[in-house]
C-alpha cells in the first residue's frame, strides 16, 4: 500500500509493455476473459477492452459487456501472448533489480 517496492515497479513496467496486446485473464472463479489489455495499476487491477468470455454458456451475464475492470485480487492467471514478451529484456531488468537489492542489503 505504501511506496511501491522495486519488484512492484518492475512488474508494473513489465505490464505496461504489454498494453494493447491480446491477453486472457483467468479469474479465481474459473471464468476466462479474453480482451485487449488497456491498463494495469499497482494492485494489478486490469482493464480489458473488446472482451469475449471463453465459456459463455456458463457465464451468460457478460454477453452485452464491451470492456471490463477486473479487481486484481480475483485474478488467478494472466495468459500472455508469447511474442509480446521480450524475455532477454525482462531477464536483464530482473538481474539489475536483484543487483540493486543486494547492494542495498550490504
Amino acid at each position: 500500500m505504501c511506496a511501491p517496492s522495486a519488484d512492484e515497479r518492475l512488474r508494473n513496467s513489465f505490464f505496461k509493455t504489454l498494453i494493447d496486446n491480446q491477453v486472457t485473464v483467468e479469474l479465481k472463479n474459473d471464468i476466462q476473459i479474453r480482451g485487449t489489455l488497456k491498463s494495469v495499476d499497482q494492485y494489478l487491477n486490469i482493464k480489458l477492452d473488446d472482451i469475449s468470455v471463453l465459456d459463455d454458456l456458463k457465464y451468460p451475464h457478460l454477453s452485452s459487456v464491451k470492456n471490463v475492470f477486473i479487481r486484481g485480487s480475483v485474478v488467478r492467471y494472466v495468459h500472455l501472448p508469447h511474442n509480446a514478451v521480450d524475455v532477454t529484456l525482462l531477464e536483464d531488468a530482473t538481474r539489475r533489480e536483484a543487483a540493486n537489492q543486494a547492494q542495498k542489503a550490504k
Partner: peptide, 21 residues
C-alpha cells in the same frame, strides 16, 4: 470494494436484448 469481482461497461446497443437463449 473487496466484494467486487469485476466491473463491465454495458454496451447500450446490445442491452435491450436478453442474452441469447
Amino acid at each position: 470494494g473487496e466484494n467486487v469481482l469485476l466491473l463491465g461497461e454495458i454496451d447500450l446497443d446490445k442491452d435491450d436484448e436478453p442474452p441469447a437463449g
